[in-house]
Design a protein around this nucleic acid. Sequence first.
DNA 1: CTGAAAGCGCTTACAG
DNA 2: CTGAAAGCGCTTACAG
Lengths: 339, 339
Amino acid sequence: MAKETIAGLAKRLGISKASVSYALNGQPGVSEVTRRRVLDLAEELEWYPSSSARALSRSRSGAVGMVLSADPDLIGTEPYYMGLLAGIETALAEGDMALMLRMVGTDPAQERATYERWAGERKVDGVLMFDHLHEDPRPALLDRLGLPFVLHGAPERHGPAPFSGTTTDHAVDSATIVNHLHLRGHRRIAHVSGPHRFLHEEQRIACVRRRAAAHGMAVVTREGNYALAAGHDAVVSLLGEPVEDAVTAVILGNDLMSMGALLALRELGLRCPEDVAIVSWDDSLHCQLASPSVTALSRNPVMQGRVAAELLLSLLDSGTLQTRAMPASDLVARSSTGS
Amino acid sequence: MAKETIAGLAKRLGISKASVSYALNGQPGVSEVTRRRVLDLAEELEWYPSSSARALSRSRSGAVGMVLSADPDLIGTEPYYMGLLAGIETALAEGDMALMLRMVGTDPAQERATYERWAGERKVDGVLMFDHLHEDPRPALLDRLGLPFVLHGAPERHGPAPFSGTTTDHAVDSATIVNHLHLRGHRRIAHVSGPHRFLHEEQRIACVRRRAAAHGMAVVTREGNYALAAGHDAVVSLLGEPVEDAVTAVILGNDLMSMGALLALRELGLRCPEDVAIVSWDDSLHCQLASPSVTALSRNPVMQGRVAAELLLSLLDSGTLQTRAMPASDLVARSSTGS
DNA sequence: CTGAAAGCGCTTACAG
DNA sequence: CTGAAAGCGCTTACAG
């Protein structure tokens, strides 16, 4: 059997293609009885309108794009992204939008090339982006390309061109962590952040410093890259030599670095939490299963993904630019801080 | 500026739309010099042909679909899928195909509904599927829908209708694990599998039994569901009461159940590996980081995803149905079996 | 409320 | 090698 088309349905029903189209799309211009007949026949035939024909005549692809840039062999170690993806997809499905996924390496040029191509081909109606960078070229690029986007993890202060995005209150999250450590008696702490090129890492660093200063605590900062080895090496460099005023607690920018920190402490013969406490800025099963289990800030990736996708959907169908603040994260206190 | 079209390029160059199209698609019918002029202009204008127009006239969407069915909150705990996705995407990108991703809940009807819709809308040219089930209805459904597909993890013996897929030699993998345990002196082992509805779990069970029998080893089987708690509970039920002929080693169907098993041993006051050894049928960071670290069978999800995607690409452009055997997995020996 | 027609932007026989 | 034209399957003013 050849594929059924809208013309076929129209002929079977003895009406025009336009009527079928109006009926399918819930447009006025058909009687209720005609609409029902169309819908019933479509269902009976298991017929759906061709997405490409629809995309062409509507000038809308019905899909949203997302590019994940990461080392393919390491992507599996980032459960945060998988959760985000799940939240995004669920929300998009409800809005009847498809998700187009592209994975590229860590070269930022590949991500930009993907956007140029998608815009040129009109392959997607909009884009979801993550991890705002210092002087991020992407918002301007997407504006130039005319591709609507939502930035998950946008800066709280906007530049000249406003855009849609989600924001996180780093001051609150930082306070949650620092207060927790202060309460447990720590006065000298270290903060091993992710790469400085990410705006949110810069903000976290500043907020941790500010909060620690308010408590009269000293804080040492190190830059990591989210890999296990970075957490390990930072701890070795911080605590490898016995010194007078060694830090008694270390905050790490994600769960993997926290695992690395734990390994380093073990190697150095330091006990956790008795000698050194550990806090992870990202919760995961790793934090739960480690021994000692690791106190962690619990973001909610599924919910965050959902919100980001909803912002994009509303941007696409009403053109409203808006930013939405993520709720403060909860600290899950575990053994690594003596809880 | 309005969006450039193929007609616009043709006019600018003073040639026909057909020539532009031939030039872009590497078809014969244009002189080399004309082709170059077209390509240069397209590049200069950052112009790409509209994907929906192309899809409509070619009757090909240029996309491949994949539905992941899992609990959204648990999906992040399955690094295997993320790796698979990375491998698939890399291969598809090289074949100039887009990936359409849909996440649905655990209700199998949702997955099938997605296929029906995709086929009806002609949204994707083909589909990638995982985890062959007992009496799996999906291959027949996709055949009826006329949607080409590749089944990752296909049964080694095919039914009446042949199809494209990847196969795993469970006998070899099972032997790797069982031999490893036999060599370390174990004579009574347990095998906590994933759900029996998955064909590969049934096959693993049979292969482990067969291999163990060949060595004169006794094997007890339990059905799990891949969750941490299932591994925990299985071990409690196997080793909770001290018995004469208790098992001395447990094979678990994935990394999460292995973590659960480790927790249970700790609770029961049993030492690993001295009292009970553990082997995981799936490697991951969890196995590496656990204490003791867990001996695991290392599949290579990125490579497997790549192979599956390549099978689909070749099915789509030459119609060749083929199955490809995955290489045998390696056993990574770690502390949990005394290595 | 309904129908005939143009248009979305490509590809692809077909005639020159 | 090139050009005019039909066709892919929808949507959407427009006239009745």
